[in-house]
Design a protein around this nucleic acid. Structure first.
Lengths: 204, 204
DNA sequence: GTCTATAACCCGATAGAC
DNA sequence: GTCTATCGGGTTATAGAC
C-alpha cells in the first residue's frame, strides 16, 4: 500500500500506471505498447514504474488485463440490467459498444482482445489473465440468463455465444471503421435469445 | 516477375517471404513479428527482403494480409460446399477451425485478426488490407447464402454475423485453450441459419 | 518512493560488393 | 537478385543519488 492516504480524485502512481496500461493495451495491443509510453501516459517516472512492477512489462500487462476486465464487467452488468427483456438486454450491449467505438473513432476497443491474440504463443501469464477476463464476462452474462429461467447449460452456451459474437463484431467494426457489424450482431442476439427462451429442452 | 522460370515445388524467395509472413502474423501478430524473423522463416537473406519489399515491414504486412485472406477464402468456399444444408455448412466451418486450432495447439489462428486489432490506431494501410480480407470472406459466405434463396439483405446480415461469431469464438478458444467456444458457435450458427430461412421477410 | 542517467540489446533499414 | 556488414534509434531494464 501507499505510504500515506490519498484522495479518491488523485489516485496513486501505481493506479495511474495500471489505468494508463489498460487504455494503451485496448488501443494498440501489448507489443506496440512500451513501458515508457505507459509511464508517460500515467504521469509517472520510470523509477516509479519498476518500483511498483519489478516484474516489468509482463507484470503490468497482467495487472492491466485484470483491472480492465473488472471495470468492464461492472459496466456490462449495469447495461444488462437496464432492459427488461433478455433479447433487448443483449442487443443493448452490442449497441452500447458501437456507440463507444464511434465516440472514440474506433480507438478504444476491448481491453483484452488484442493482447489475448498476441500472447497465445508468447506469454502463458498474459494468456491466462486474458482467459480469466473473458471467463469473468461470461459469468456476468450467464447470471442474467439464469435469472430469466434458462438452465445452467443453456445459459453457458448463450453467454459464450453472445460474447463471441460481440467480440467478433467489434473486430470487424474496428477494421472496417463501421458500426454495422455491431448493429447486425444486436439483431442476431435477439434471435438467439428468443430461440433459447422458446426451446423447451433448455428449460431447467 | 522473377528472372527465370521456377518449378511449382520451389517457390521464389518473394513467395517464400510472403508465406512466412502469413504464418508469423497468424501466430503472434504484427508488432511481435520482425523482418529478420520473416527472412529466416522464409529462408531468404535480408538483402533479398528489401529488394522485393522496398516499403519494408508495412509493405510485406499488406501483402501477407492479402495472400492469407485469399488462401483462406478458397478453403472456406470448399468447406461451405461440402454440406448440402445451409445450417450444416456454417456449423462445419466452425468445427473445421476448431480442428485446425487443436492440431496446431492454438498457434495457427486467423491470418488477419491480430494484425487488424494492432493496426487500428497505427497503420491505415494495414487496416485497409485487413478490412478488405474480412470483406472477401463475407462475400464468400454471402454467395452461399444467396444460393439458398436468401435476399441480398438477409444474406449480408447472416454472412456478417457468421463471420463475427466465428472470429470471436476463435479469439476465446485460443485464449482459453479450449475448442468449446467454437463448438458452441457451430450450434448458434445452425440456429441463425434456420431462423433466416424460416423468416418470410428475408425471402427475395 | 521517486528521479536521472545509462547500460545492454534488438529493431528496421541501408550501403555497396558481387 | 543476393549477400554481409553496419548504422542509427528505440526498447527493456538497472544503478545509484536523493
Amino acid at each position: 500500500m501507499a505510504g500515506r492516504a490519498r484522495s479518491a480524485q488523485e489516485p496513486g502512481s501505481r493506479q495511474r500506471l495500471v489505468s494508463a496500461a489498460v487504455t494503451l493495451l485496448a488501443r494498440q495491443g501489448y507489443e506496440a505498447t512500451t513501458v515508457n509510453g505507459i509511464a508517460v501516459e500515467g504521469a509517472a517516472p520510470m523509477g516509479s514504474f519498476y518500483f511498483h512492477f519489478p516484474g516489468g512489462k509482463e507484470e503490468i500487462g497482467v495487472a492491466a488485463l485484470g483491472y480492465g476486465a473488472e471495470r468492464f464487467a461492472e459496466r456490462l452488468g449495469e447495461v444488462l440490467a437496464q432492459q427488461a427483456s433478455l433479447a433487448e438486454a443483449l442487443a443493448g450491449c452490442a449497441n452500447w459498444l458501437a456507440d463507444e467505438l464511434v465516440a472514440s473513432e474506433w480507438a478504444d476497443g476491448c481491453p483484452i482482445a488484442a493482447t489475448a491474440l498476441e500472447s497465445v504463443t508468447r506469454s502463458a501469464a498474459l494468456r491466462a489473465a486474458a482467459a480469466a477476463g473473458f471467463e469473468r464476462w461470461c459469468d456476468v452474462l450467464r447470471d442474467r440468463l439464469v435469472s430469466e429461467g434458462l438452465s445452467d447449460e443453456a445459459a453457458t452456451d448463450l453467454a459464450t455465444n453472445a460474447l463471441s459474437l460481440i467480440e467478433g463484431a467489434e473486430l470487424l467494426a474496428r477494421a472496417q471503421a463501421s458500426p454495422y457489424p455491431l448493429y447486425r450482431a444486436a439483431s442476431a442476439l435477439r434471435t438467439l435469445a428468443t430461440a433459447a427462451l422458446a426451446d423447451p429442452a433448455d428449460a431447467p
